[in-house]
């Protein structure tokens, strides 16, 4: 089939599915956590920091999506994403719990 021919060698359906899950829903969660942390960390007025982080989000999402299909090991990809997600999520939780929101 045409699909098989254009797919890089040694890549199974499951491999593609795992990468697509990482590249779309997991990427969205990770990007959201990342820019939420960025919005709290940037040394600007809060509305400025929020907008700057939001603008950066699309570039971050696109790069992470490319990376999800570029890296060799799917297992390492998921490990890295989960690890980063826990770090960012924890940091965000602490920041909001101690600093509050406007």
């Amino acid at each position: 089939m045409a699909t098989k021919a254009s797919r890089p060698r040694g890549v199974s359906r499951w491999n593609v599915a795992a990468r697509a899950l990482a590249a779309i829903p997991a990427n969205y969660v990770l990007t959201s956590l990342g820019i939420a942390c960025l919005a709290r960390l940037l040394p600007m007025r809060p509305e400025e920091a929020s907008v700057a982080a939001t603008l950066a989000s699309f570039a971050l999402f696109a790069v992470l999506a490319l990376a999800a299909f570029a890296v060799r090991s799917v297992a390492r990809l998921w490990l890295a994403m989960i690890g980063a997600g826990i770090l960012l999520g924890g940091g965000l939780w602490i920041s909001i719990a101690t600093g509050g929101r406007l």
């Binding site: 820019i35 939420a36 809060p46 509305e47 920091a49 929020s50 982080a53 939001t54 989000s57 406007l102």
Partner: peptide
């Protein structure tokens, strides 16, 4: 952007309205 990625605003503002008022 604020429809697709509301989380940059949500990180600093409990309600989007207070963000739009600030802006």
């Amino acid at each position: 952007a604020t429809l697709y990625m509301p989380w940059g605003i949500a990180a600093n503002y409990a309600s989007p309205d207070s963000f739009f008022e600030a802006v």
